[in-house]
């Protein structure tokens, strides 16, 4: 097989916690293939966002290494785009201006920025909303702008942290379909973090299941589904994948709850 797009080797991330160290991520090992859409599911607090920050270069691992195209990740860069859960749009910029932000970072001339931003707003179906400020957009539209912003500077890898979690079910499903369409259209590698099993099965070609405290990659499940089939979420095959991932997560959820009741135990792992 070709070289992985992203490779995590025994990545560990510790945080200082009241004079102690708290292990948020331990020995996370994972390969992300070029052009795949990998979903990552795990219980709340298991270190998903920590993992994404590491991939994005916003933080550095305590030990282990992260390779992008075989080269170590040393910081943020325009080869990776991040879509955050809370949109993170600049409120003083219009949809257009927000999409242009990454293009400014890339150093594109003004005319080219305008044209590119328009193209990507069109791609996410917001061609008519270029002049709107974030407060004039719905949650789903804001997230589309955020996606357009991350796509516009054409990163190789798109990192998404529970991007649809704050949306209602219908908006979420339509954005999921849109994401799949965009993914096919752009050929980007996508790491999609979610706590929704259905979302992971629906979107992911593979689903990485994380354990909690300390966070580890417990298993990676290959998903072989034709999601273009009508109402695929009700099919037996879909249900089987859902059940498998649910079972993998089940003991983790219970464990996480036990830890929440006795938080000092976290430190015992160190």
């Amino acid at each position: 097989m070709s070289q992985p797009k992203l490779r995590l080797r025994e990545v560990r991330k510790e945080f200082a916690h009241r004079g102690d160290t708290f292990v948020a991520l331990a020995d996370a090992t994972l390969d992300v293939r070029p052009g795949e859409l990998l979903a990552v599911v795990g219980p709340s607090g298991c270190g998903k966002s920590t993992l994404l920050d590491l991939l994005g270069g916003l933080t550095t691992p305590s030990s282990g290494e992260i390779l992008l195209d075989g080269r170590p990740v040393t910081g943020p860069g325009l080869d990776r785009g991040i879509v955050f859960q809370q949109y993170a749009l600049l409120p003083w910029r219009t949809a257009q201006g927000n999409v242009e932000l990454g293009l400014e970072a890339k150093g594109l001339p003004r005319a080219e920025r305008r044209e590119t931003a328009r193209r990507f707003l069109d791609l996410v179906g917001l061609g008519g909303f270029a002049d709107r400020y974030p407060h004039e957009l719905s949650g789903g539209m804001k997230q589309r702008v955020a996606i357009a912003r991350s796509l516009a500077f054409e990163p190789d890898v798109l990192l998404m942290d529970e991007p649809f979690a704050a949306l209602d079910a219908q908006t979420r499903e339509s954005l999921q379909d849109e994401l799949l369409r965009i993914w096919r259209a752009t050929g980007a590698t996508i790491v999609f973090i979610t706590h929704g099993i259905d979302e992971a099965v629906y979107l992911g070609q593979r689903v990485a299941v994380m354990t909690s405290r300390p966070g580890r990659i417990k298993a990676v499940v290959d998903v072989d589904l034709d999601v273009s089939a009508p109402d695929v979420r009700s099919t037996d095959a879909f249900g089987a994948y859902r059940h498998r991932i649910w079972s993998l997560l089940q003991d983790e959820v219970v464990r996480a709850q036990q830890h929440e009741l006795a938080p000092r135990e976290d430190l015992a792992h160190v």
Partner: peptide, 16 residues
């Protein structure tokens, strides 16, 4: 801080 994080993720220099 989220806006700062998001701008940092674009690789903006401190001045930018």
């Amino acid at each position: 801080p989220l806006l700062v994080r998001s701008a940092r993720s674009l690789g903006l220099s401190p001045l930018r």
